[in-house]
Design a protein around this nucleic acid. Structure first.
Lengths: 223, 223
DNA sequence: CTACGGGACAAACCTAGGTATAGCTCGCCC
DNA sequence: GGGCGAGCTATACCTAGGTTTGTCCCGTAG
């Protein structure tokens, strides 16, 4: 299970997870790279927050291992910037001299873990595994939702009106009354909506519409 | 807005939020009680984990303010016990001598905040407000879901079979084929399901069924 | 034994959903 | 100015959904 099947060079085009390490201390970077590679994980290392912000976010399940204290932007600042940029790669912090308020802030902002130096290898590997798993799930959800969203965007304004009323359970005649239309018009829009959204039944359509609305409140459980 | 409209004795039967304080130091308890009462919050105070475990959980929005170090069960132990007992009252920890691993563990387990002594009054009040708000939302969701669940439990086994297939978008004739029934039988069960569940449309039924299935993965966002 | 609830089905009947074909106006882009 | 897409509607027709009434079998609780 922990066997290396290939030389595992970080080539593009596969979907092996990758760990992104940000630490200004080259010896720490080296140690983390060795640790992760020893269990067959791909790694990319950076010396500062700005370096990683310039690189494009990977499109495979990944996580960040961040030192709190970094030259320029701190780890916490980087976390905030990534959140603002709508990048949700899970973050594991490491610190030599952190305090509790810092920890709380990081965890409240969604960090997966906050480890103190000296970090035990197993703790780090456990945290990374949990983080990558979290990212995998997030990407899965994100993929299906963005699919639905792009279909939704192909709807005309009027079709969207009809969709929201139909998905709320109103009958065609009531939708028609609500929108000042003839019932037949609603039926036709409804058929177009089903086709454009790729829904094979009303139940599917309702679920898709829910997924669009639920976009705001989401987060996964811990442990 | 912060005005006291009544003498505010903790009578049962209203739905004013309440803060539950657990600290073994009477002077700290006193200070916290004063603080919370000064902004019109109801408070109940306890000296140990076992004391609060014996009292019945309040049925109004509430939160716990826990010292990490307690006689007997520690704050973290209490948190774990409450989780096991399926009691999800949000928790705010306070500590004089906490460390980072402790903080991480508490936050991972869902704590709202983790404050270090000396605690600034405003920080405590902010945390309590956030915690109570979280509990209020959780209770709201819990209320509607348990409503749906109790309706679901009034369904016969066969009706549940039909429900899950109907809610997945299958047509009556396909449901019938799947279950080895006549289409008319499915129609009749379907009508009974709609009545028992109190759904006025298929869309509502689908949403109810989703709510039942989503029971496991839930958590709300932070900040 | 009887009453009762769950499960299953049928005929008859009605309503809601959905498609095809066709036709209309309006604003916009080239 | 002609083509185009969005928006809107009508007629006709078909399928799916849903109720009512009535019937039957079975197991079990009283």
């Amino acid at each position: 299970m922990t066997e290396r099947h290939k030389p595992s060079l970080p080539q593009t085009g596969n979907d092996e997870p990758i760990v992104l390490v940000v630490d200004d201390d080259p010896s720490v970077r080296r140690a983390l790279i060795n640790l992760f590679e020893s269990v067959g994980l791909r790694v990319a290392a950076f010396g500062s927050a700005s370096e990683i912000l310039q690189s494009k976010p990977p499109e495979v399940p990944s996580c960040l291992v961040l030192d709190i204290r970094l030259p320029g932007l701190s780890g916490l600042d980087l976390q905030a910037d990534l959140a603002k940029a709508n990048i949700h790669t899970p973050i594991i912090f490491i610190t030599g001299h952190g305090d509790i308020p810092m920890t709380v802030r990081a965890m409240k902002s969604g960090a997966v873990d906050f480890l103190t130096k000296p970090v035990r290898d197993q703790d780090m590997l456990d945290a990374v595994q949990a983080a990558i798993e979290r990212d995998r799930k997030r990407r899965e959800i994100e993929k299906t939702v963005s699919n639905v969203r792009s279909r939704f965007e192909s709807l005309t304004p009027r079709e969207r009106d009809v969709l929201s009323l139909v998905a709320s359970g109103m009958m065609n005649k009531h939708v028609a009354a609500e929108l000042g239309l003839a019932e037949i018009t609603v039926k036709i829009y409804r058929g177009q909506i089903m086709r454009k959204m790729g829904a094979k039944s009303l139940a599917e359509l309702v679920k898709m519409n829910e997924a669009l609305g639920t976009q705001h409140a989401k987060r996964d459980e811990q442990t």
